[in-house]
Design a protein around this nucleic acid. Sequence first.
DNA 1: AGCCAGGACACGA
DNA 2: TCGTGTCATGGC
Length: 304
Amino acid sequence: MGDCVDHCELAFSWKNDACVITGFDSFDLHMTCQCGQAFRWVRAGDSGQLEEGVVRGRFLRLEQRGAELVVHPPADDETVAIVADYFRLRQSHAALEVGIAGIDPIMARAVDSARGLRLVAQEPWECLVSYIVSANNSVAQISRVVENLSRTWGRPVDGSLRYSFPAPNDLGCASEADVLACKAGFRSRSICEAAGKIAGGELDLDAVVAMEYHAAKQELMRLRGVGEKVADCVLLFSMGKFEAFPIDVWIERAVRCLYFGGEQVSHREIRQWAAASFGRLAGYAQEYLFAYARLSIPGKLRNG
DNA sequence: AGCCAGGACACGA
DNA sequence: TCGTGTCATGGC
């Protein structure tokens, strides 16, 4: 069930320059875009029905109508392909959710609280910078900084007022003071160093993608500002390493309260427990737990 | 005013 | 290998 085999046969039909995608199973566009794994999606439209974002240098304007996903113009073949790929629409997600919900009653509740939540296939470089920025930061602030970086060094994206996320080369030309002006704070130095190392070929993200999970994690952690948690997020959200189990304050709280009776648990213990409990699906389990924990703000999960 | 936010790092024991 | 203070920045 975690083999990421494509199961869903998608159908595409064009109406009025928009493309309607059907054929996918369990999928919730807003849940997926707003859960805090990616930072460039904006809810738009009169009733907040749209999700607008920039992926691979293209402006995407999406709307879900039940079992239909509408790609608003421009919906050329490449754009539609990017959408299907980004949200992994060919993957049978319903089957995966059944598998996760079947692990234990807590996971059943977690899946139920966020059904249709997908792990998107982000671009590694953008994801890396986003999660360097995430250190001791809030989702709203991370989005702001990523948007500032794009506006400052990215390229204008056709059909929108948005900008592409700058390539390592483009960001590599920036001074630390320039990055600081984007409100990146104490993470500015880490961003500049990462851009320099990747632009200079000292670290090859394509090579990291090809590595086995643990080796890939060690490689990413060579970068300043990249510890275990950030590395796991990059591996999970942009490199298809679904055994990654990022542990942040929310996950620690959720695991401690829901599984360890409120007793203190070290990150090392949580990692071992997650690997033993969820195996290759750890990343998906983590994302449902994260959504479940954040949904129960403020404090249902606090202190046992 | 003080604490928290999808932490990492240097330091000391 | 473990805890602790610190790092910008903004919201509550």
